[in-house]
Write a protein that binds this DNA or RNA. Structure first.
Lengths: 239, 239
DNA sequence: CCGACAATGGGGGAAATCCCTCAATATCGC
DNA sequence: GCGATATTGAGGGATTTCCCCCATTGTCGG
């Protein structure tokens, strides 16, 4: 099977990249992951920066908690502890759920086997760090390295396509500051003082100061140090 | 060819993941990318945060500038303008070099064709944002979406494996600050002033100030604003 | 043309940070 | 126990940032 699966994965990705609605993405993922034993899916955007890791759920489907019921987004957020691991994850990982005496126990494993719900969690990174993740789960899953790779490929493209469709073409938060302001803040984050920045950009010290004040006001923060953090978080300047 | 290539890519990735030295990675990449027309390679770690984007080159090979000579790392850094585009890139992209009147012109294109050197640039992201990239180039390259996907897969695994081998198992910079220092810096990043932090943590204003000075010294930065950036970048505090 | 806003700059003064040095505990590894 | 390091705190002064006000120029959309 695996000799074919790689090619199928590539075809799925290409189809997903061209998808024009979420349903198309979903059916592609189902068609690819189904034969590998996966029948539960979650796709969401995330951020390591926010207080709430989980930002918005694009797609949730299947009997995630083994109680025979489908799960809605809120429930998933509240109950699934797997998502917490994505903050430390650097690449896709398999997990398994074992039912113990004191509730469910989720563990990260090399290759899940046996009874219970297992799954693959695929973190998705971008210029800002963690940007989202896809979880795939099932009871009898193909947990080979081959499956990890191909599912990872499909999951990443599914996330990117879903975000493209659901979050609009481009309009995000990276536009609160004007160009000059971003520039001044970038130099500030680089360790330059107001006088130095003024010299670098050919401005008066006063202007740099005024820019910084306006930046603080715009970002709604009290100090320049905090402005750096918020700007990084918003993608205004690079970390 | 492509029906086979996807499977070959997966096998290459699995081999690369198990590689124990750089040479093994290189030969895997060559074996996979060669038949697609790529015979120039660069693999390097990067950071959108550094003043110097390029941090260290793991591997450079081939006649990158079309002058019949192999290129060493320093030359590549100085001369290749393609790397500058990775700061804005969100996914792998093709580029092409056209020789114009006033020097070489590098452009990002959908699918490079015709005479000249073309290539694929694959940015690699991680929890901290941009962490590295791989460039593959050649004169007669397969620039299909299929090649983009499979080469991307191979490039990412090559980068991760090379970093694992060359930068040691784990020892990175996420432990330069003491617990208290991290705490103080976190509150600073949250917009609190020294007095406020002192009150919150039950310290004297002097102590907070001393902590901040030591933080700056340790991180090797000039201002607290810069310390915030560097600390976020190093994973000391959350963005 | 006129309001909105980016970008520039200034005066004056209050507040905060930064820099140097020095010193006392406390803890941990060897 | 002894050195290294974390954590705490201080004196005193030099810089720097921050905050309130204000004004000018230019650009852009309605």
């Amino acid at each position: 099977m695996s000799a074919v699966a790689a090619e199928v994965a590539v075809r799925s990705v290409l189809a997903i990249e061209d998808a024009e609605d979420l349903a198309a993405i979903e059916s592609e993922v189902r068609a690819f992951a189904g034969p590998l034993g996966y029948d539960r899916f979650v796709l969401f955007s995330a951020s390591a920066a926010q207080d709430e890791v989980l930002q918005s759920i694009y797609w949730v489907e299947g009997d995630w908690f083994g109680d025979g019921e489908s799960v809605d987004a809120e429930t998933y957020i509240r109950r699934c502890p797997v998502t917490r691991h994505i903050l430390e994850a650097h690449e896709p990982f398999f997990w398994t759920k074992t039912v113990g005496d004191n509730g469910d126990l989720y563990r990260i494993v090399r290759a899940p086997r046996g009874r219970g719900i297992h799954g693959l969690q695929v973190p998705i990174f971008g210029p800002l760090g963690l940007e989202g993740a896809m979880s795939l789960g099932g009871e009898q899953i193909d947990a080979s390295a081959h499956a990890r790779l191909t599912l990872g490929l499909v999951a990443v493209s599914a996330f990117l396509a879903a975000r493209r469709i659901l979050e609009g073409p481009a309009g995000d938060a990276a536009g609160k500051l004007s160009g000059r302001e971003r520039q001044v803040l970038a130099w500030t984050a680089a360790g330059r003082r107001q006088v130095e920045i003024a010299a670098t950009l050919g401005l008066s010290e006063r202007t740099v100061e005024n820019h910084l004040r306006r930046i603080r006001k715009r970002l709604g923060v009290a100090t320049t140090a905090q402005a750096i953090r918020v700007a990084i978080r918003n993608g205004e300047i690079a970390a």
